[in-house]
Write a protein that binds this DNA or RNA. Structure first.
Lengths: 128, 128
DNA sequence: CAAACGTCTGAGCAATCGTTCATATGTTAC
DNA sequence: GTAACATATGAACGATTGCTCAGACGTTTG
């Protein structure tokens, strides 16, 4: 990030007087790399839509095909397929073909626990 | 959801023949309520943006003011403030005033662990 | 009081998202 | 082969997102 004015701390900014650059530098050093941040963000983003969350929830129990999910959630099979593609691209679900049907399951166990954690958060009374 | 055709199962759909309605009904019974889903989704959505994730990460270590966050992340104080408002509205962060400055901290410990879990997922080699 | 500072907020805008529709692909049954 | 079916995909649309900008608000300092 723009740290060109590292030494010359302008006095017209915030608490830029004593703590200033040291604090920011220390925080920047502790900051996670952008690559890691991106993976975290994408995992959370996959779980930030009601349709996808419901799909994940259903798939965490058992293997389901596209039309099962569509009817369960009351949305178009096309919509489900699009969302599945997203989840597939992030390796959150995997699929296997059986005849005409394609069955989906959760791929990543991290996501299962991540989702469970979110659910626990939601169910907790103090959790707004 | 549109379940008007509950009894009259059209034979022209998927594996609607034997398993059909039972399976869907069972899944629907196991489905979490929309209210809970919404809370889950909103929590994950709060963590589905790089700026916010970085803010959460920084705040999970120590109390910070708006301009600290802005300089740390290299974005406008306005942008930070907007995001803080979102996080505040979901009770993920709390603030205290000290003179002109307003210091923010994480409010909810669930979010801290949720974020930690996401981070662990990202750092894990098999996690794509 | 007025000026300076840190923060907040509303409007506006480009970018992204989730859906629908039409169509394509791949499989099975005839 | 053709027809029927399950799923995938691209284009297009409205809705939402995250940012910037300009200005308002609340506090401190003189």
């Amino acid at each position: 990030m723009p740290n060109s004015t590292a030494a010359t701390q302008q006095a017209t900014e915030c608490e830029a007087h004593f703590v200033d650059e040291d604090k920011i530098r220390r925080l920047q050093a502790a900051m996670v790399s952008d690559d890691i941040i991106d993976i975290v963000v994408q995992a959370f983003r996959a779980l930030s839509d009601p349709t996808r969350v419901k799909m994940i929830h259903a798939l965490s129990t058992e293997e389901l095909c596209v039309c099962d999910l569509a009817r369960l959630l009351g949305v178009t099979e096309s919509a489900v397929s699009h969302q599945l593609r997203l989840l597939r691209s992030q390796r959150l679900v995997k699929h296997r073909r059986k005849g005409k049907m394609i069955y989906y399951t959760l791929d990543d166990d991290h996501i299962r626990t991540l989702f469970a954690q979110g659910l626990e958060h939601a169910k907790c009374p103090q959790g707004r």
